[in-house]
Each structure stands twice: as structure tokens, then as C-alpha cells.
Design a protein around this nucleic acid. Structure first.
Lengths: 193, 193, 193, 193
DNA sequence: CCTTAACCGAGACGGTACGTCCCGTCTTCTA
DNA sequence: TAGAAGACGGGACGTACCGTCTCGGTTAAGG
């Protein structure tokens, strides 16, 4: 509905506000003022600040290819570890973190937003990982992908602990062992004293 | 600061509101009206609705022993599976879920609340699990505890998938295999054809 | 400026809205929507709803000869009384009254509109009456016309009282006595015991 | 409901705005800003600017005895003429006129306001005049009072003509003649050549 | 038992933001 | 080339809560 020019103004405004303000304090009036746009123009296109923010993030991730890609060097362990490191880096990046936290907070109370977030970002991410795993001798690649991401988000979302150096590597080891097939386990045992 | 009678009224009010209303729509005025208490009385003791809600949850979990306890039957697999099942049950209980989601949403934007939540509820929970694991031949019980809870909360917080029947059991298997020592792995292989 | 077809649509729209809505709630957008005309088309021709309404009333009074004419039967008293009765009827007619009230309200704040209203409707009306009076033995026909209409509008505009039956007749008597010449007064006295 | 201090601030604000602004452009937000009062404080007590304005006028007319009193020197003609002159002066006073016009405009669309205006201001005024007339040999003092005020308001409300010098005196003559009894008419004729 | 201080209800208040309506201007697309 | 369609900046609407601030009444402990 809104013209491209307007969308750009609004996205820039909401992202800059999210960077500097308390996240809960972003208001439609504030966004309108910052964007130099009338409130009605906002409401014609977006029902709430959370949706604006989500759209802005989506637009950015589409344009800049902001998503974390799954590397594919042929060495599974190496690939998974660099994926974990990249994911942690994104989650704790000072410009990204507040935005991502805002959206995940919104997900708790907005099922529509949650569905969009799931379908457009999370499920593709999990699928990309499980596809990478499927090409190796992994019994249940979907479960392995969850096992890989679960503890990362557990720490981040519930703020239980920071990510200590070396953790990524050990974590990948555990995940691979968790879903290793009989053959791989035998191989592992052979290599471990 | 507030008298016990007042606290009870307020906690009951906020919990009943949380059950019926949209969670974001809980307001100090609404709680005051529901509790039959003046706004000033609320503000004397609590700075915001999120703190009231958190206090109310804490008070309840202390009184009713609402926390999920780690069973200790001697059979590790059985114990972990029943723990996972109980955790999932609590997270998806229709009266609990909205409250828990509200608090986890608040955690994203309120670091003080996050610290309290972590210290009073999450860390004890993880410790209880890792203590249970330590008594078995588990290499890294803390990591195992995270591996156990991480995917559960990943599904629940990011709403990626529902918990399908049988998942708990398979998940426990994977977690145990992930952190199994050489001896345990040999045992596992012996039992698996 | 606007094409006749457009004018008709607009006049019909504004008159129908005036009949059904609260008078203050007529808006340019509402008229445009009702008339099936774009807002720009309205603004090209009329600056405000009050002007549209006034134009619509004028157009109607010109076409339907909606104005109250001064009867001329030769019997002054009879003529004046039927004029008064007709005027009261117009002012209190349920389809006319709201429109007339809207315009008179506008007159209080819009001097341009007041001038048009005066020149096109009120002054001709007063002139018609005083011309009728001038043909009789009336000292000051302009004053008499004002004396005739003044109390009618005083009751109607300030809503002081309803018009009770028989009032018109007595009122005409008083007005005639008020402006009677010496000769007429003598005649009156001769006829009154 | 509002505290006296607040009422004073609000009345002063609305009266000062009415003096300087276009009358139709008085808004709740404008009054609140000028009074240094929050919008909610206004709405808690008054439903609209028209009611604020009316209350402010009432408060002023009560405190300053702003109403036009009927003089009582014993000489009826003299008294009525000075009453007419005073009334005209009030209606055309540059600080009063916009306020009075605003209220009379509102009366056209607000029947509740009209009733209050009638009962608190207009009817007492008419009664005061007719009481003064009743003490003389006037047949129908109520009708005479209407005959006296009607043309004044006709000119003022419909803006038909300005009040020319000498008109007040001639108008009083006509009104007295209009409702004069036989005895008074004889007296009048005797005094007029 | 009485006082005296903490606690409480009630609610007016200045303020921010909400989401809506309408203003008057402007551009774009269609007939 | 006129006109519908409608996006746009702007102002005001009336409402919901915010957090602060008196102002009287209760209540419960300590003298």
C-alpha cells in the first residue's frame, strides 16, 4: 500500500530508533516523527511497531542477504563450528541483538508474528542445517539441527550464561556424537583411547 | 512493604488478569481495580506490572512447590524422560503458558528481571539436572543439562514445532549418547544391533 | 465550474446527509463518498461543506420556488396572518428546519456567507413584506416588517418558546397597531368598545 | 469535579482564545494547552468546547453581574429605551460579540445547551422585562417583551442591518403602541398632533 | 487503652501515546 | 483532458494509562 519511498523512510526510522532507544519505548508516534511521515500513513500499512520492526528486519535480511548461511567445505565438524560461531556472533552483535530480542519478545505474545517468523526465518534456517547434515551419515538430521541450535538459543533467550571460548567446538562434538550412527560411533571409539 | 493481605489481593488480581486478558494489556490501573487496591498502594511496592507478575509467579512457585523436580528413581533414562515430559507439560499448560511467556518476553528487555529469573529459577533447575547426571557416568553434566533443555525451549520460545508424542524419549536418548563416556558408548553399541 | 451533472449529485448528497446525520458531522469526505465524486472535484468548486449546503439550499429555493411568498388578497390582516403561518410552517418543517438551522449557525461565524444569505434571501423577503405594507396606511413599512418577523425568529433561533395556536393572529394585530398611523388608530378605537 | 483552581484556568483560557481566534477553531487541545492543563482534565469535567465556553460565560455573568438589568426609573419609555441601548451595546461589544455568537450558533445544533441557555439566561431576561411592563397599563406584557427583543435579535443574528442611531427610541415607541390599551392609545393620540 | 505512625482508598492532575477522522494537497492512472 | 482513486502531511479527536500528588480514613503496634 505504502509507496517504496515511504517504506524506506519508515524502515530507516524504526531501525535507528531501535538502535538508540529502549526497545519497549518505540511508539508509532515516535516512528512517524522520525520518519517525517504522518501517523495515518503508518497505520494504513502497519498495525503496530512490532510489525514495522519485523518488516524492516525482513527487508534488510532479504536485501543484504543478512541471514547466516550454512557453510559447506566438505568437513562437517568445521562447517558446523563456524556456523555456531557465526550464529553466536550475530546474536551478540550490539546492533543486531536488541532488534532480535525485540522480535523474539513479540513472538511470545503475537502468534501471527510468530508464524511469519517461523516460516520465513527459522524453519528455513533449520532446514538448511538439516540438509547439510543429511549429506553425512547422520541418523536424524532434523533432531540434530535442533540439538545444535537449542542450547545456543537457550543461553541467549533465557540469558543463563555467556558463550565462553571453546564452547562452540565442544558443543558441535556433542551434537555429532548424539546423532551418530553405529558406524560413526565405532569410528569415534576407535579414534578415542 | 505491603501488608500480606494486600500482596495476596494483588497477586490474585494479576494472575487472574493474565489468564483472561491479552498479556500485553495488563496495566497498573487494571490490576489496582481488580485487586480493589489503590494505584498508590501498587506503586509503593512494585515498579511495574512485569515485576508484580514475576513476584506473583515466584510466590506461587515457592508456596505450591510449583517447580518441576528432578526425579531420582535410579534409572537415569526413565528419570530424564519423565522430567522432559513434566517440563513440556508445564510449558504447555493452558494456565501456565501465558504467564511463562509473559515473563520470558520481559526478560528480553529487562536485564534486572532476567538476572532474578536466572538466579532464582533457571540456574537451580539446570543445577538440579546436572547434579542428577553427575551421579552417573556422564562426562560433562552441565553441558548435558543444556543439551536436554535447549531444544525444548527452542521449540517453545520460538514456536517452531509442537512436541510430538515419542519425541521426549528419543531426545533423551540423543542427549545421553551425546555426552556418553567411552564405557557407556561401548555399552550402548553392545545393546544396539 | 463543476458540470451540472456533478452539481446535482453533490447537492443531492449534501441534502440527504443533512437530513439524516448530525448537522455538525457533515464532512467533505462524507459528501464526496455519498455523491460518488472525488474529493478533488468538490474542492475545485466549493471551499467547505457549509458553502455546499448553502448553494444546495439556494438551488432548491430557486427551482422549487421554495421561498415564502407574500400573499396579496387585498385584506392586509388576512394576508399577514397567512404569511406568518406559512413562515412558521417552513421554519418548523422537519426536513427544512435542520438545514435552516445549519445555515443560520454558519452565519454567526462566516461573514461572507452572512452577506450572501442576507442579500439573496433575507432582504428580498423583508422588502416583499414592506412593499405589501406600503400599499396600506402604514407609517414605516420597513420597521413593521421587522416587527413582524423579529419575534418569530427570536422564538425560533433562541428556542425560547414554541408557537402556540392563535399566536399568529394576535401577533399580526399587535404589529399593525404598532405602526398604525393616527387615522388608523382612530379607526381602531372607534371599533373597540 | 474539577478543582476551583482548574476551573479558573480553563475559563480564562477559553475566553482569551475566543477573543483572539476564529471561533470555530477553538479546540479542546488548544484550550488545554492555553490553560496549562491536560486534555483529560478537560474531558473529566466538560464534554466539548461549546460547553466550556457556555460555562465560562455563565460563571462570568454570575460573578460580574454581567447581565443586562431592566432599569426602573418610573418612566417606562426612558427605561425601555435605555434597556434597548444597553442590549445593543452588549451584543455589539467587540469582546462580547464573538462569544455570544458562538453560543447562539451552538444553540442551533445542541438542544441541551439551548435548554440551559433558555432557562438560565433568556427566559429570566424576558421575564424581567415583562414584569417591568406589567406594572404599567400594558395588556400583554409577555408579547410586548418579545416584540421589544425580537427585532433586535433579528438584526443581530441574521445580520440584516446595523443599528442606526435613533432606531432604539422609535422602536420603543412602536412596541408601546403595539400593546397599548384603549386608555393608553387615547393618551397617545392626545399627545400626538 | 490509647495514641501515633504506617498503610491505604480515592481520585484529580500533567503528561504520552493510542488509533481514528477529516482536512486540503498532490500524483497517478483511466476513459 | 477531466475526473476517480487514493497516498500523503497534518491537526484534532476522545480514550487509556502512566506515575505523582494530596487528602482523609483505617489499622495495628507501642507506650
Amino acid at each position: 500500500m505504502a509507496r517504496p519511498r515511504t517504506r524506506t523512510l519508515v524502515y530507516d526510522a524504526v531501525l535507528s530508533l531501535a538502535r538508540e532507544d529502549r526497545l519497549g519505548s518505540i511508539s508509532m508516534e515516535g516512528v512517524a516523527a522520525r520518519a517525517g511521515v504522518s501517523k495515518q500513513t503508518l497505520y494504513r500499512t502497519w498495525p503496530s511497531t512490532r510489525v514495522i520492526l519485523f518488516d524492516a528486519l525482513l527487508a534488510r535480511s532479504l536485501s543484504e542477504d543478512g541471514m547466516v548461511a550454512v557453510p559447506n567445505s566438505g568437513y562437517l565438524e568445521v562447517d558446523l563450528e563456524s556456523l555456531v560461531v557465526a550464529t553466536i556472533a550475530e546474536l551478540t552483535d550490539s546492533t543486531q541483538e536488541p532488534l532480535l530480542r525485540a522480535v523474539t519478545a513479540d513472538i511470545q505474545t503475537d502468534e501471527v508474528l510468530a508464524a511469519q517468523f517461523r516460516d520465513r526465518l527459522l524453519t528455513p534456517q533449520l532446514k538448511a542445517i538439516s540438509n547439510r547434515l543429511r549429506r553425512e551419515s547422520i541418523d536424524d538430521p532434523d533432531a540434530a539441527a535442533e540439538l545444535l541450535l537449542g542450547p545456543i538459543f537457550h543461553r541467549w533467550l533465557l540469558r543463563t550464561r555467556a558463550f565462553e571460548p571453546g564452547w562452540a567446538s565442544a558443543h558441535v562434538q556433542r551434537v555429532l556424537q548424539a546423532t551418530a550412527s553405529r558406524a560413526v560411533l565405532l569410528d569415534l571409539l576407535a579414534r578415542r583411547p
